[in-house]
Design a protein around this nucleic acid. Structure first.
Lengths: 110, 110
DNA sequence: AAACAATATATCTATACGGCTATATAGCCA
DNA sequence: TGGCTATATAGCCGTATAGATATATTGTTT
């Protein structure tokens, strides 16, 4: 069975899909609007949208004739939370916090 | 051509590979050590390691007979930086900061 | 109802991916 | 050198993925 993170990361692994998310960061958009910047066929875009939706990264609405998409932040937060565990490996100030916690709480961290 | 983020995200889309990164967060490990928790064949693990290395998520060393792997934080930071642009969508306090900046700097943000 | 617009689904094709087994390579030790 | 250990590479197979074109669906408009 595939985990959330599996699905989210593989949805994010495609530049077209990341660009779509980027567009949706500016607010809701129809499929046609989302498709416009790309040279791909409309069905190709619909497929990408399906992948994003199944990963929980976007949601579809309904407005008259169209089905506008909006960003769904929760899935991105899932990724941010996962990656936060690694932050200390690149973030100096976080390392210092870590040292501080080690001393104060006697937390082992070799 | 595939971008960095393409390669990194698709490397992260596999649970075995994420588990390997988790293990490497505790420090350097040999291939055998990394393979141990899994029921996969050794070549399968080597393949996963290659994917991680090509994504820049890990590095190989050389120590006598073995080729220990270490975490390479830069690639994870690339992801963290990418996702940071979306942080405002889920982080309340960030939203408040955003409001603050709007007022102070007259920055438009509808 | 008919035509149109927006989007989804079906089907096909080519390529990528993850697993396996078998084998090659490289360093260590007797 | 020969054998052992650690790891990599090759080749194969089944499934998934991204694209295309053709067609279906649903709401709107006349």
């Amino acid at each position: 069975m595939k985990s959330n993170l599996d699905t989210i990361f593989s949805a994010l692994a495609d530049p077209t899909r990341r660009a779509i998310l980027g567009r949706l960061a500016n607010g809701k958009a129809t499929v046609a609007e989302l498709a416009d910047p790309f040279e791909l066929s409309q069905p190709a875009i619909s497929k990408h949208l399906k992948v994003l939706e199944q990963a929980g990264l976007i949601r579809s609405g309904r407005e008259a004739n169209s089905r506008p998409r909006v960003l769904e932040p929760a899935a991105l937060k899932t990724v941010a939370d996962w990656i936060a565990d690694y932050r200390r490996f690149w973030d100096q100030s976080f390392d210092r916090l870590d040292d501080y916690l080690s001393k104060v709480q006697g937390y082992e961290n070799d």
